[in-house]
Nucleic acid binder design. Sequence first.
RNA 1: GCAGCUGUAGCUCAGUUGGUUAGAGCACCAGAUUGUGGAUCUGGGGGUCGGUGGUUCGAGUCCACCCAGCUGUACCA
Length: 518
Amino acid sequence: MAKQKKKSQRPKARLPKGFRDISAVEMAATRRMMDTIRAVYESYGFEALETPFIEYAECLGKFLPDEDRPNEGVFSFRDEDEQWLSLRYDLTAPLARHVAEHYDRLPKPFRSWRAGWVFRNEKPGPGRFRQFMQFDADTVGTASVLADAEVCMMAADTFERLGIPRGDYLLKINNRKILDGVLETIGQADEERRLTILRAIDKLDRLGPDAVRALLGEGRLDESGDFTRGAGLNPDQIAKVMAFVEAGLEGGGRADVIRRLEPLVGTSATGAEGIAELEEIAAFLDAVGYEEDRITFDPAVVRGLGYYTGPVFEAELTFPVTDEEGRTVRFGSVGGGGRYDDLVARFRGERVPATGFSVGVSRLLSALQHLGRTSREGEERPVVILVLDRERMADYWRMSEELRNAGIRAEVYMGTSGLKAQMKYADRRGAPLAIIEGEDERARGEVQIKDLIEGRRKAQAIASRQEWIEQRPAQVSVPRAQLVEAVREILAAQAADQNADPAAGQAAKAAANGQGEA
RNA sequence: GCAGCUGUAGCUCAGUUGGUUAGAGCACCAGAUUGUGGAUCUGGGGGUCGGUGGUUCGAGUCCACCCAGCUGUACCA
């Protein structure tokens, strides 16, 4: 009885939903990807900046209206002095805080990149987590839309440097001011309705034009039978908004899209301003040779709501991909950004124009993996030195030292089990090879080196235990003095083999993944 | 948040009209094999049957409520 009680008090080992553990393999791939992004951003002149995970909630600007409590979407807690602290939910709000705080001594424009984890307290879904990594670059302190164009060019460069071919990604640019102009001409300027309209437009690529039309009007019934209330526009207004949204669907280049948008903003000054900005961006992109196959104009891009005040952009992967169950999935957006001229003004009163772009690191990484564009560099697993003779530990340590000094990852088995369990350990560890030195070998002045990858392959052909033991597949005996050299040779052969036969590499990777991933 | 579906071992699932101590396969651990990953054989660990309450002599099974997960949808700075 007491035992049962105790048992029920045991915590269940589990991760909070929306969070995950990250394996060594994924960390290595992430690190390589981020190195590439950083190299591109720095080549454009952006400086590194790191801000903490935690900020005062009020600095992130996410208090609920009329309430003394931060927004539900952010993880928040109270400091000992009763102030609300929040985990950052993006890298832009902390940047605005940093710029406002140190405005006087920063060079203007201030160009910085930041990378790291952000947190959102939202319902997780496939490919959506509550902790994920972003990689941002921003230019603060210039109102020129050339800064917007530059950041899009840089995003295009980044994707290509990461191995995504031109045509497999696309940057789409829009301008909030144009939609505002359209809404002005149809007499819908009030904020509440504007947000509903933005949300409806945002769903174009996911739900299609009919659904968007329904959401602009009365509302829409989804397939589970749930009803979403619409913006309540009349048919004439809906037609105008849809004409705007679909101006990008009819093909043609950036100039064609602009020409189709012009009549839709009517006499609105804001709309005209938006058009002029797009024209300036187009002229610049044409001049530096970033054509429509990389950067297009698409009025359906709205980027949620929030703080964007001018150009907005979204980066999309356009190639289809099949998931584990063989279904075709679209990766869709892997990054985005836009102009936020009011964000710093929250702190300073004075308007400080700014624009930036943010890459969704984790989504982009899984896209690259689907493309088979991730290299295996940095995935080497350690050689494992088995312990047959506990009195000779010093000998084994010396071996590991020699290997490490030669730049080879190596470890001495640290458990207390027998040889069989040690082999199993090395196998599961994903070790490329195991070193065996017992009494017999020592008497001969030799060590055995077992190629675990080759051995795994040969094992499939062996049926009987007898044969297995006698053959000792993929195992060689070399003089002790030649240990390092022999190990180096076998590792080189394995690497060559892996490059020639990707399937073998996959198998090794799968084995290596075994312990690290859920 | 709303709607639909699903909850039995780490995973995939079986479990009779309600009836002893809840099972299988895979996985895990150990031995057979003083010193060799795989295969084979033997043994072992692991379950609050999602939870609580109810009906009953008796509930994994029937009823009610709750919870969790999945999918869609809403929100998403």
